[in-house]
Nucleic acid binder design. Structure first.
Lengths: 336, 336
DNA sequence: GTCCCGTACTATACCGGTACAGACCCGAGG
DNA sequence: CCTCGGGTCTGTACCGGTATAGTACGGGAC
């Protein structure tokens, strides 16, 4: 059978194609009676509704928002914090009738999602700011909101006060009396810049420098799972080991606690550990983690609000969400 | 400035629009020299590349695959198993130059993703089989692969041997000598059918029925986090409490262990607990979980292979992936 | 010289809709 | 009686590409 289009229905009912289009897309433009007849004919012919691709071309919008992520998408899903962010974004978009299209970084030159996938707007999430994908989006003129970055001037952004949170975390340890402090943070590619990692490092130093404390820094990649624990052990397995450690994430903090336990140290008696993010892991950990809370769901909502605003041509101010130190059981005064 | 299209470039260079199209999409169709000139003119005019929406209409393909999920998307992201599946799917699609579009269940009648979003194919994942979204996809004629379901005859599917895995789990407990066995499984909406939940239940009974064991069954929803633990406690806080429990998931198993601990019971000495999925939680748990392993990444790969095959009009056989019992430290012979 | 074929480019016909500017008809107001 | 306005429907002009079937031309085989 030939494909059913608006035209076939129009012919069948004896009206113009435009009227059939209106029957589906702008019901107030025609009489209810005629609309019924059209819908009946459509059902009879097996017409499902206006073709999304054709509609996208004619209307100039697709109904979906892209999420640009570079690096392996697996990481994004498997990390508790980014998964929660994605969840918040997708739910929020769904409420507004928008679908979410994940745009992986271009691997093959022949197909570049940031250049070749139709979207009405894009969120730029875990992304090397020098990524060519961002350039593609910009050249296409796709409205764009950057999350957890400050890619470039004039681009709308949603950020968390990473620096302030890190400062509070380090200050907390200083206030408890710690003087030998370690840092377990993210290892980044030489020329890649991880915005949160940099901001958090600045924040830690904001508190440590004035106290005259020179932290011992170790870095570890996200994966494999055991890497952070091994790195933490090298930090702790020495005579002048720190009495407290601030970590880039809750996962790193938990790895650090495990490393400490494996060395016979007790947290928080022998070692204080402070995480970041306040992910689901934090409260469930034993001992429960002192950490810096960020409102991931709010970040998602803000990002969606911002991109939707941009898509409606409303200029958007940069958003900076607060963080808050949550003191639980993994931090205490230094031993002795 | 007016929008730059193939035509503007064609006019500028003095060739036909088709030749410009070929310069971008089929480089072997024109001389290298002319192609260079065209690309140069395009760059000069600020042309980014063929418009994705227009291309989608003309070519009849969009370059993205939909993932239909109903229920809150958050759940899908926050559950370790489904997150790993999504990760596997998105990576695998990315390798083939396809983007992934998440299609939430229709909330608003006015915008129904399964009807209104352009995709070349769809994976149907966590979905009530009676969902109208599946009907929409089917009516549209979108190639469709169902994962962790058996929605209807003739639809390609990828499943895991849930029943066999559950049977092995229950048989393991029977073999250890357990006679009072509890089940902690998923609570589903009255008329919704959760395929894995049903299959696992069948599998448990496959092993328990021949042994003449009548299990005590309790059910709990996915969320909130504490619900499973509370339910498990009701199962364990009685005189004739089971000596072993099989669970719908590793998360439920861990909740059950917590409940046991809170009642002063030791796992596995007083109580054996067996999970399902072998998620990252399982090996990390204390004690490490005896559980049923499923290869989630393989499930993602199989799903992508299947949908890509269908999109190329190659009929697909149903796929059934194996499961395997992994015996770790949470199961032992019954006390006494 | 003629035939044949491959290379390079063009002409035409869609793909399946939507926006916008009328045209028509009818009842109400002046 | 004429005009005006609103509710309905139509006609036309796109949206920005791609597929396919050509045409024109140059060179090698015979």
């Amino acid at each position: 059978m030939a494909k059913v289009t608006l035209q076939s229905i129009a012919d069948r009912v004896g009206v113009s194609r435009m009227t059939v289009s209106n029957a589906f897309s702008r019901p107030d433009q025609l009489s209810a009676e005629l609309r019924e007849r059209i819908l009946a004919a459509a059902a009879e012919l097996g017409y499902v509704g206006p073709d999304p691709a054709a509609r996208a071309l004619a209307r100039g919008r697709t109904g979906s928002v892209g999420l640009l992520i570079n690096g392996s998408l697996s990481e994004a899903f498997e990390d508790a914090v980014s998964a929660a962010f994605l969840a918040s974004v997708s739910d929020e978009l769904a409420d507004r009738g928008l679908a979410l299209t994940l745009m992986p970084a271009s691997s093959d030159e022949r197909f570049v999602p940031s250049r070749d996938v139709a979207v009405d707007g894009a969120l730029v999430y875990i992304c090397d700011p020098t990524s060519s994908d961002i350039d593609w989006l910009e050249r296409r003129g796709v409205p764009m909101v950057v999350v957890d970055h400050n890619v470039r001037e004039g681009v709308a952004s949603v950020n968390v006060d990473d620096r302030g949170g890190a400062r509070a975390a380090a200050q907390h340890l200083v206030d408890l009396g710690h003087r030998r402090i370690g840092i377990v943070t993210l290892e980044t590619e030489p020329d890649a810049v991880n915005h949160p990692a940099r901001e958090r490092m600045l924040g830690w130093h904001d508190a440590l420098d004035p106290a005259g404390i020179e932290p011992t820094v170790v870095t570890t990649p996200y994966t494999p799972a055991g890497a952070a624990e091994d790195v933490a052990r090298t930090l702790l397995d020495r005579d002048d080991r720190p009495t407290a450690v601030v970590c880039f994430s809750d996962a790193f903090a938990i790895a650090t606690i495990r490393a400490a336990e494996s060395l016979g140290l007790t947290v928080p008696d022998d070692l204080s550990v402070v995480g970041f993010d306040d992910s689901v892991l934090a409260a469930a950990s034993r001992p429960p983690l002192t950490t810096v809370h960020q409102e991931v769901a709010a970040k998602g909502r803000a990002a969606v609000a911002s991109i939707v605003g941009l898509m409606a041509s409303t200029p958007q101010e940069p958003v900076l969400l607060p963080t808050e130190l949550i003191v639980r059981g993994s931090s205490a005064a230094p031993p002795g």
